[in-house]
Design a protein around this nucleic acid. Sequence first.
DNA 1: TTGTATGCGTTATCAA
DNA 2: TTGATAACGCATACAA
Lengths: 339, 339
Amino acid sequence: MKPITLKDIALKLNISVTTVSKALQGRRDVSKSTRQSVVDLAEEMNYVPNSVAVNLRTQQTKTIGVIIPTVVHQFFSKVIDGVIEEAEKQGYLVITLQSNENFEFEKKQLQLLMQKRVDGILISLSNETQHCNHLNEIIKNEIPIVLFDKIYKLANCSKVYIDDQQAAYNAVTSLIKKGYKRIAHFRGSLTPQNSIDRFLGYKRALTDNDIEFDASLVYLCNNNDDFNDGYNNANKLLIEQNNVDAIFAITDLIAVGILKCFNEKGIKIPKDIAVFGFSDWFMASVVTPSLSSVKQPSFEMGRKATEILIDEIKNLNKNISYSFQNVVLPTTLAIRDSI
Amino acid sequence: MKPITLKDIALKLNISVTTVSKALQGRRDVSKSTRQSVVDLAEEMNYVPNSVAVNLRTQQTKTIGVIIPTVVHQFFSKVIDGVIEEAEKQGYLVITLQSNENFEFEKKQLQLLMQKRVDGILISLSNETQHCNHLNEIIKNEIPIVLFDKIYKLANCSKVYIDDQQAAYNAVTSLIKKGYKRIAHFRGSLTPQNSIDRFLGYKRALTDNDIEFDASLVYLCNNNDDFNDGYNNANKLLIEQNNVDAIFAITDLIAVGILKCFNEKGIKIPKDIAVFGFSDWFMASVVTPSLSSVKQPSFEMGRKATEILIDEIKNLNKNISYSFQNVVLPTTLAIRDSI
DNA sequence: TTGTATGCGTTATCAA
DNA sequence: TTGATAACGCATACAA
């Protein structure tokens, strides 16, 4: 059964398509009686407006695109939740794409979204991404774009993120205040901004507390497999170091990998070595011992980024100029048994 | 800057839009030289085809919609992963919507997808859903639809799911084989098919092994808050029962809630009481003790459902008739320290 | 209050 | 090999 169109309704009622269109839009330059009969017939015939036609005509799709590294990730799925909820509230649909932490993929996905003529784009950059030429392409085409989480600071658009450096600083400081002195850091890849910032926060917390930074205490986790990276590096650390009393891990998954290693080896947490995570996934509260972690507002990040994006879309449509926003969301510490 | 159109290219080259269109489609009823110049200019002008116009003209959107209860859920995010991957491979985009376990919402989301003229729909039913009139509406409009995971058996469409009853049977049987005799069941809501099936599997495993079914050992978890449902019911069970030696929980989250309760109360797992979960979330392998669970193929479920859906879309386009598929995916048991 | 004409950007038919 | 024309379904400026 082919979908009913305005034409079908017009034909049956012996009026013009225009009038049907107007009636359905509830405008009052159409008599109450015809409006009613149109609405009734549309209902009866199960008329469903064709968004594609509307989109072509109105030049907007009421759809936004989101690109994230991966959906199977508690942080990002919560972000998506926030995005979908806010988008829906404002009548927008959401197309989700993954970059798989791959720059070429990320570029391709942006291209797809442009073709699809989405009204705006949300993106959290892949770890590989080291410039924003591909974003500039979008910006040049006047498609609003908002960066979140993994941002590129120089990009010429709005951004929603957390103060990674400060969050890491707070976490490490809390370790120091508890008396830990020789604190290792399990860091992420070298290029992503938040990996760098968390490392810098770690370093600054040390120096601010007169603890000398020791590069040999920094372990690199960059295999896109946090849990095993944490597990393996924990093993390595046990061999290489003998007086580390705490570890600040850049993600909860890495921290949980560390926990597993230590639990297996009979290392007592936090007595022998304390562990601090980052992101506060649900898991953190149910592992043994429960994991201290930095709480970051994932749902709110998605929601806020979407709100800003849709604002920009609306401004653009109304030809109102706007300036880009830099929203820094607050983080807190969830202190649990692992420290 | 407004997007470049075929017309812009045609104008510059002083040829017709038709020819430009043909050239870009790589057809050979256009001379090699003009084809080349068109392609070159398109490249130079950064031409991006307008999908909306293409969609209107070709009457297909190359987009599919997915409706799931919630995205913040490891099982569903893995399903989505499978969906996106398969869809992408076949050149389709994915719009994700959530029903929030609410029937009215589910209906509304279906309506939205119809408006959007998606080529097909994937859906995992909400717990509230108890009939498929809303699905029939879609089917009547000849939009292919594939049910997965939370299916409605009588629906007239393809389905991809697991044999919940058998999976539960296997899990409970493995408990019995280990010597557990008084096995409680933490079940889900009363209406969803997989909640019913898992319960039936539990029951059948008991009777097949000459263990009398005791309704007082069945605890209901239906507050859409599995972790706390598990935690609270575990507390309740400790008060009400004194010789239960194992619990089969309908989800890992419920099982982890049980673990937390028992760990707090000093109940030894599995010595005092064994616990078996369902779904095998990542979490299961890192909690203490590690949780035995039923592994179900989430990614593959999404991938397979998408494959079937797109097949049906293609058949429909070619006017080839097809019959609905019932794909039952295999499950296995992940046996760990909790039993 | 109603309807005619036009166009959104593309593809497809068919004649030149 | 090329292009004029129509059509996809809808919304809007404007005329009646």
